[in-house]
């Protein structure tokens, strides 16, 4: 709210909410939209809505257990959401496959008739990648999607998942290899070896 807000950092808000539970709502206002986006990309429709809402209920109940030494409030919230999504991983995987199938046969759209071949190719590549997410192990997928869709750093992802940073790196690397393979299947002219991307 512009000039009206004074910002108190997340950890201070969370610690204060232990004595003054109502303060917790501030974290909802800060993170619900972003967290809903992350959850909804992994579980579309009501599943994503539920995960986003339940994340805050669980976080509120467990607010006494949050350890500021082990990572940010944001990473903690995304970790809770990720655990909730993992419990629904079958729905998640089916959702990716259904999405890729539906997107492969889009309804005729006169607004996009002049799409360039490049854009068509990029859309096809994205569909392949989404479909490939269904084939990843739950651990690799969590790490990859916290980084790419959750926009967490490797350190935050490590805190969210409760694993060492090195483990995040190797999981993300393994997940990338698999989706790259799915891409190369789409575009066999592309070289198979690429420079590593540091994210």
């Amino acid at each position: 709210m512009g000039g009206l807000e004074t910002s108190e950092d997340d950890v201070a808000v969370l610690l204060r909410s232990r004595g003054e539970p109502d303060c917790f709502a501030e974290l909802f206002e800060r993170y619900f939209t972003g967290l809903h986006g992350y959850a909804s990309r992994r579980l579309d429709g009501p599943g994503g809505d539920d995960v986003a809402a339940e994340t805050f209920l669980i976080a509120f109940r467990q607010r006494d257990r949050f350890d500021p030494g082990r990572g940010s409030v944001r990473a903690w919230l995304y970790g809770i959401a990720t655990n909730l999504i993992r419990a629904r991983r079958r729905d998640e995987a089916q959702g990716y496959l259904a999405y890729a199938r539906a997107a492969a046969h889009p309804a005729a759209d006169p607004m996009h008739e002049e799409q360039t071949t490049d854009r068509v190719a990029a859309a096809a590549a994205r569909n392949r990648i989404v479909a490939a997410l269904a084939g990843l192990s739950a651990r690799d997928r969590d790490a990859l999607l916290l980084v790419v869709w959750g926009e967490l750093s490797h350190e935050e992802t490590a805190a969210a998942l409760g694993v060492p940073v090195g483990t995040v790196g190797s999981r993300v690397h393994r997940a990338r290899r698999k989706i790259r393979a799915a891409l190369d299947d789409v575009d066999p002219t592309r070289p198979t070896e690429r420079t590593a991307r540091h994210g």
Binding site: F24, A25, F32, H36, R41, R176, I179, R194
Partner: peptide
């Protein structure tokens, strides 16, 4: 575009509706 760039823009979602946000906020309240 590498696979991470493509993934980052894949399966976009719209922000939660006011009703969705209000329902989630109410459960928390």
């Amino acid at each position: 575009m590498d696979e991470l760039d493509l993934l980052a823009t894949a399966r976009p979602v719209t922000p939660p509706t006011a009703e969705t946000t209000a329902a989630a906020r109410q459960r928390l309240f």
